[in-house]
Amino acid sequence: MLNDALLLAAKDLRVERRSRVLTGQVLPFGLIVLILFGFGISPDRRVVEAPDRTVLEQVAPGLFWLAVLLSALLALGRSFAIEAVDGNLDALKLTGLDPAGVFLGKALAIWLELLAIELLLGVGSLALYGATITHPLLLLVTVLAATTSIAAAGTLYAALASGLRVRDTLVPLLVLPVLAPVLLGATLATEAALFGPAGDGWPWAGLISTFAVLYLGAGMVSFGVLLEET
């Protein structure tokens, strides 16, 4: 299963490296979203409860994770678009690859792509919104857990929609509600990582870690049936 996962992930990353959709389209899209969010909020406005902080700085975690989530939708759509065309999904079924391995491989490729997106958008957020990191370990755990949740749940629902003609519009409808708790938890944990206290963030980091494990498990168990029905 792990060998199958690595094979699929390597293939997806090779496709990405040659097509440059991530670097040429998804990353610029995420940056544009970050900049547009910034336009909507005055950079001089201060938080009433914490006058040493700007409103933009205060909402930076939520804006960052929203930008990540919107960029992830593009990456997920792309990940299954390459399988849906030209009979590739049927060819995958003919290989006898372990469906759980296929799921893990697709999710792993998305996970790595999302980490690259988050790195760039994180730097962009710090630069544009003026936030600073005070608890890096909490931030690291939050990022890893939230990214795993987005990759796992996104892969599962993108696969569900992949056989449909309306998949491009259906994937956001399916994925966004499912990932709403992850967005909430990641935002609050990131807020704690930026402004403290760290103790406020760890329960949220734990919650999204639980979601990550649940989504991974659900994907590994159900992906075979999903693949069969698409």
């Binding site: 293939k11 496709v15 040659r18 097509s19 009979g87 590739n88 049927d90 060819a91 003919l94 006898g96």
Partner: peptide, 18 residues
């Protein structure tokens, strides 16, 4: 069965970018 047959369908089942 799938592992033991070879199917050449109308679609070529190849990745365009590779």
């Amino acid at each position: 069965v799938r592992r033991q047959v070879g199917l050449l369908a109308h679609a070529s089942a190849l990745y365009d970018d590779l």
